[in-house]
Computed example of a mutant assay.
Amino acid sequence: MLRRAVALMFAFAVTQAHAITVTDDSGASVTLAKPAERVVSLAPHVTELLFAAGGGGRIVGAVTFSDYPKEAQAIPRVGDNKALDLERIVALHPDLIVVWRHGNASRQMDRLHALGVPIYFSEPKHLDDIAASIGKLGALLGTQEQAHASADAFTRDIAQLRARYAQRPRVSVFYQVWDDPLMTLNRDHVFDEVIGLCGGVNVFATEKPRVPTISTEAVLAANPEAIVTSTPGATQPDRQLPGLERWKRWTSMTAVARGNLFGIDGDLINRPTPRLASGAEALCRDLEVARGRRGK
């Protein structure tokens, strides 16, 4: 009995010594006894982060629009951001579930917690958080080497853009998220940081909440030098993304008068993943075009 007890204590000590613990984006600790081998991703950006971290081959279930990289399109679907197929998730026997804190319904989150499977909440709010998220997911997957390489590449790309554009003359920017109702982003969203690194200024940075609804009159009063929105990328939405045609009637607004109405692939600017560096590069180029149109 004593020998068996000692053996069990030793086994427990080894397990504890090799346990993996990280802090997710909600501030909670996530602990795994060993690297995850069967992961369910409950947001498209999560799927991209898992692939970047070297764990694409371990994703056994994902939600609709998890379409990047191409290999992600073959992963079995377990619902979308509105409804999850909880029975199918259980049937996949995951040892880690990665969710989008504000994209998945709280009632379903409660049911997921009841499964007893470790849950990692993912919602990067800053550019540095994207690299950190890749590293943390890599730790949970045991794929640290690839994760660190991906995180370092993203950090390097962002640093290069910041060095090139952040000190350029300021360009006031209105980012249109949606047109009916008219919506934008405040300074608490990662894309506000992208605007800043390109030398832009978000004209609605101080609005509340994080995705505030505004009026046409507010945009006219702000008189932005550039208006930017997302355009359909590989992800085709349920309905047409908002366009910028509505603003062309306001010919006295600076952005319209100078032709500074820009659309960028939504897949590159709406997901907090390494591809945001490509979206940032596109925005930086557009704002440089806006600077070139001054005085003409």
Rank of each mutant, 00 (worst) to 15 (best):
L2I: 15
R3V: 15
V6F: 15
L8S: 13
M9F: 13
F10A: 15
A13R: 13
I20S: 10
I20H: 02
S26A: 02
G27T: 07
S29P: 03
T31W: 10
L32M: 03
A33G: 13
A33Q: 15
L42E: 04
V46D: 02
L49D: 02
L49V: 07
G55P: 04
R58G: 07
V63I: 08
Y68I: 05
A72S: 12
A74M: 09
P76M: 09
R77L: 12
V78K: 08
V78E: 00
V78C: 04
D80K: 08
A83H: 13
L86R: 03
L86P: 14
L86T: 11
H93S: 12
P94G: 11
I97S: 03
R101F: 11
G103L: 10
A105E: 15
A105R: 14
S106V: 14
L112K: 07
G116L: 05
V117S: 07
P118Y: 01
I119P: 11
L127N: 01
D129H: 00
A132Y: 09
I134Q: 08
I134R: 12
L137S: 05
L137N: 10
A139P: 09
G142L: 12
E145I: 09
Q146R: 14
H148D: 14
D152W: 10
D152K: 13
D152Q: 15
I158K: 01
I158W: 00
A159S: 14
A159F: 09
L161M: 11
A163D: 13
A163Y: 05
Q167I: 01
R168Y: 04
P169D: 04
V171L: 04
S172A: 01
Y175D: 06
V177C: 06
D179S: 00
L182W: 10
N186F: 02
E193C: 06
G196D: 10
L197K: 04
L197N: 02
G199E: 03
G199C: 01
G199L: 08
V201G: 03
A205Y: 10
P209V: 09
P212M: 12
T213L: 08
I214Q: 09
I214T: 07
T216Y: 10
E217T: 09
V219C: 15
A222F: 14
E225T: 00
A234G: 13
Q236E: 12
R239P: 04
R239T: 07
Q240V: 10
Q240M: 11
L241S: 11
L241C: 08
L244Y: 00
E245N: 02
E245L: 03
K248C: 13
K248G: 02
R249Y: 11
R249T: 15
S252Y: 12
M253T: 05
A255W: 02
R258F: 00
G259H: 05
N260A: 05
F262I: 06
I264C: 06
D265G: 04
G266N: 04
D267Y: 01
P272M: 00
T273C: 05
T273K: 07
R275F: 09
R275K: 11
A277M: 00
S278Y: 07
S278D: 15
C284T: 02
R285V: 04
D286V: 04
D286C: 10
D286Y: 06
L287P: 00
A290W: 05
R293T: 00
